[in-house]
Amino acid sequence: MDNRFFDNWSTQLRKGMLDLCILNAIKGTSLYGYDIVRKLRNIRGLVISEGTIYPILSRLKREGFVQTTIKESTEGPPRKYYELTDKGKTILSEMNGYWKDIKTGTDALKREE
């Protein structure tokens, strides 16, 4: 029962965190899909299925937060690179601020224990 509770909770948390992490991963740079996956893979517990990142990238693109450019690759076929749009930069700044507040509040609660 406790495991199920933890699984549900962590799934919900991951859903929200993935958007933030993807946007942060491409902040100030342009990366192609697999590069983003590789970066997020290093965060323990964040990426359960690597395929979940691509639909999020598509959604972020649809919502105008990221844009894509096709670039030739020396190692294979052309690759699609993702980078933040101005709208994406603005929302990311808001999201980071919001997350900082939540984290600070949570840490403060933990210290009170």
Partner: peptide, 19 residues
């Protein structure tokens, strides 16, 4: 309606090729 199957297929293949 919102997801292009061709794009997903390209993503999958690109991922595997990169791996």
């Amino acid at each position: 309606k919102t997801v292009d199957a061709d794009e997903v297929e390209r993503n999958v293949i690109e991922h595997i090729e990169s791996e």
